[in-house]
Structures are given as structure tokens and as C-alpha cells.
Design a binder for these strands. Structure first.
Lengths: 128, 128
DNA sequence: CGTCGAGTAAACCATATGGTTTATTATTCG
DNA sequence: CGAATAATAAACCATATGGTTTACTCGACG
């Protein structure tokens, strides 16, 4: 049997949006990257890469990889052109992810509401 | 050089929570699984596996795998003991994920507020 | 100029993941 | 019982990912 591999078509926005969300959720699916996000969110400055690596007890190479993942997701940016570069948070993608979740929950809430009203119907008219 | 592989310790709750969040975000990092979630959220009934597979144009085997991922994340449950099983949404994990994002954004907002007050300080006292 | 150090790239390995094809386990129903 | 069928498991392949070790680039600075 042959199936429509991949797509499925339902609830799609644009390809780009989907890819972006893929990247955001994938980036957040790893604990040390989540920790990195809140580490950045909690500070008032933008630390240098080596600073981050030292703070988090992670090798510069690995930090570089995780940073790349977060960058791809648009959660983080590297700034600075010199020898030293700084890591800054960019929460736009985070907001997108939250909005996706909120939308999904809204559908679900609507479903619960429908159930509620159905139950009300039953209570009003037990024969229904 | 030897680095403290993995942990990092920051902002950790329990191991279980972290694993759960890993699974939730990983599950949502795939578009067809996200679509599956909203597909389920949008209906008022709990469709059978074969129904879902047909609706989404996906092989039963692949649906099974995706379902396993969502199940692992606690986003979905299979109910029914007979030959036919139904898929139901379980949004508790979704709420957890949302809460993580909200918390991260709260940190970030606090940071913006700090920046604001710093700027105010500058405006009040340009020599600061 | 030389070298030191921050940051990154590359090679490489082990394991995980997405997906297909093939096979197995029930459970319903003639 | 026996065939059909819903659901799942298993074997397998290609590619992606996390992580380490090694090597490169490039700006600062004596």
C-alpha cells in the first residue's frame, strides 16, 4: 500500500512556519538547551560563549552545537564580530511555540465546552 | 579536558519532570504529530486507530509509532481493550509544556523590566 | 612577527528517529 | 472452526543527533 508520506495537509500554515516550529520544539526537547534558555533569560547581561561554557560546565564545542540548534530555532542569536561573541536570547520563537500550544488547547477547551453543554442537555431533558 | 557531561544542574526540577518535558517537546517537534494533536483536539469523539490512519493518509504502522511517541509524552492515550482501540487526547502534558514556556518568558520579562528601570535611572541621573 | 586564546569546524562514533516492508497477535463473525 | 481484519511488533535502512577528540581560523597583543 502507498500512503501520502509526510504531509497530511491538516491544519498546515506555511511550510516555513512548520519548519520553524519543528526547530523550536526540537531545540526545547533537550534539557541542557532548555536550561540554557532560562540561564540566558535570567541574566541581565549577554555573556560571552566562554563564559557560558564555564558557567554551565560544558565544552565550548558542545556549547557551539547546542547554540547552533537554538539559533536554527530562532531562540538565540550570537552578537559581536570580534574575537569574543556574546549570546543573546530572542524570545520571538518562544512566543510562537506558546501560541501553538494555546491554540491547541483552545480547540480542546471548545471540545470540553461542547461536552458540558451536551451534559446540560441531558440534565434538562433526561430522555434526550 | 573533562566536562560535567549532561546535567549542568541549573534550574532542574526532578529527573522525571525533565524527561517528561524532553518527551513532550520531542513529540511536538514533528509536524505530523502536532497535526495529530490538533486533529484530536478538534473532534468531539475519540476515533479508532484505523479511522485516524485513514483520515490522515498515514499507514497504521507509522501511526502506531507516532502514537507511541505522543503516548510517551503523555499527550495521548489509547483506550479500549477489544480489537478496536480509540485515541484520546490528554492535555496535561501540553499544559506542562506551556507552563515551562511561560516561566521562561517570565524570567525574560523580568530582565526587560530590569533594563527599563536601569534606563530610568540613567534618565534621572545621567552621571550614573 | 609570533603566539596565545576565543570560537568554530571537521571527523568520527554511538545511539536515536522516521519510515517502509514483512510478520504476528488477537478479536470478531460467517 | 476458519477467514478477515484491527492493531501492533519486528526487522531493517537511511539519516539525524549528541558527544568527544582533533584541527583550523582569526583577532589581540607582547
Amino acid at each position: 500500500m502507498v500512503y501520502s508520506t509526510g504531509d497530511g495537509g491538516l491544519q498546515a500554515r506555511t511550510e516555513g512556519d512548520a519548519d520553524r516550529l519543528d526547530a523550536v520544539f526540537a531545540a526545547l526537547s533537550h534539557r541542557s538547551r532548555r536550561d540554557l534558555v532560562v540561564y540566558l533569560a535570567a541574566r541581565t547581561d549577554s555573556p560571552r560563549m566562554s563564559q557560558v561554557a564555564a558557567d554551565r560546565g560544558v565544552s565550548p564545542q558542545l556549547l557551539n552545537k547546542h547554540t547552533a540548534a537554538l539559533e536554527k530555532a530562532g531562540l538565540v542569536r550570537r552578537v559581536g564580530d570580534g574575537r569574543e561573541r556574546r549570546l543573546v536570547l530572542d524570545t520571538v520563537a518562544l512566543i510562537e511555540a506558546q501560541q501553538w500550544i494555546v491554540r491547541a488547547r483552545e480547540y480542546w477547551t471548545a471540545r470540553l465546552d461542547a461536552l458540558d453543554s451536551y451534559i446540560s442537555t441531558l440534565e434538562d431533558d433526561p430522555d434526550a
